[in-house]
């Protein structure tokens, strides 16, 4: 009884120190930064390797019969286009933002999946990373809104329907990147916490590994899809209204 308590408590406090360390301005902060940065770089390296691999498909002539790599590339791009960028209100916007949304999706997907590998952790279970991504989506949506509507209409939009609604509008606008970032962060972190707690509580390795696969692979993919499609929805709303 005592050992289980000790283990659980140790895991949770360790998790807290490791993940929530940015809430304290502690001495461990630097170490934690390093880990998140290294995980991000691993994800980037994986994605660039994937890009280099898929790039081989483009070497052959258009006339030739598609080979396997090209079929994979076709499937990937078709998936991204039909599921994500097809939801944009205009086709031009979808084509313009296709690289951004696709990179967002692939980065978050690979980040979530990285946590499945023992010894590695997801960069997305760090609030700073998700907040950075969400703020980028926010900045993109505001920039596109300014471009689409013009400065005057854009700033006037904050005074509608009544001028005294200004603070509410600003809060509403700012709450989007917040919830966007917290959603991904919370989901990934919840998966990690649950897996760690179960791993500390139950000795058989099979249960936590199944949980790990479910949370890491399945929920990871769903959360990556949700993150990307919410980015699409936020940009759509910002450009339209």
């Amino acid at each position: 009884m005592g050992t289980i308590f000790e283990q659980l408590s140790g895991t949770l406090t360790h998790l807290g120190e490791k993940q929530i360390v940015t809430f304290h301005l502690g001495s461990l902060q630097l170490q934690f930064d390093k880990a998140a940065m290294i995980m991000s770089w691993i994800v980037m390296a994986l994605l660039i390797a994937l890009a280099l691999f898929l790039r081989r498909a483009l070497l052959q002539d258009v006339e030739d019969k598609p080979n396997r790599v090209q079929a994979a590339l076709d499937a990937l791009i078709d998936l991204l286009q039909s599921q994500l960028t097809a939801n944009f209100s205009s086709e031009r916007l979808g084509n313009e933002l296709f690289p951004f949304i696709s990179t967002l999706f692939l980065f978050v997907l690979f980040s979530n999946w990285l946590g499945v590998i023992p010894g590695l952790s997801s960069p997305t279970q760090d609030l700073n990373v998700t907040m950075g991504l969400a703020l980028m989506v926010f900045a993109t949506s505001q920039f596109l809104a300014m471009k689409a509507k013009g400065m005057k209409t854009y700033w006037k939009g904050y005074l509608e329907p009544m001028p005294f609604m200004l603070p509410l509008n600003i809060i509403g606008e700012l709450s989007r990147p917040m919830s966007h970032a917290f959603r991904l962060f919370g989901n990934v972190l919840a998966g990690t916490i649950l897996t760690t707690v179960v791993m500390a509580k139950f000795a058989p390795i099979i249960v936590p590994s199944i949980l790990n696969v479910v949370f890491g692979l399945f929920f990871g993919a769903i959360q990556a899809f949700v993150f990307a499609i919410l980015a699409v929805a936020y940009i759509n709303v910002a450009v339209e209204n």
């Binding site: 304290h24 930064d33 998140a36 770089w41 907040m131 950075g132």
Partner: peptide
């Protein structure tokens, strides 16, 4: 306590990745 340097580093990382993948 949100680590702004890490946040900016993440943004720069992502921008770099976006550029390379594009």
């Amino acid at each position: 306590s949100i680590n702004w340097t890490l946040l900016m580093a993440g943004v720069i990382n992502f921008g770099l990745l976006l550029y390379i993948l594009k």
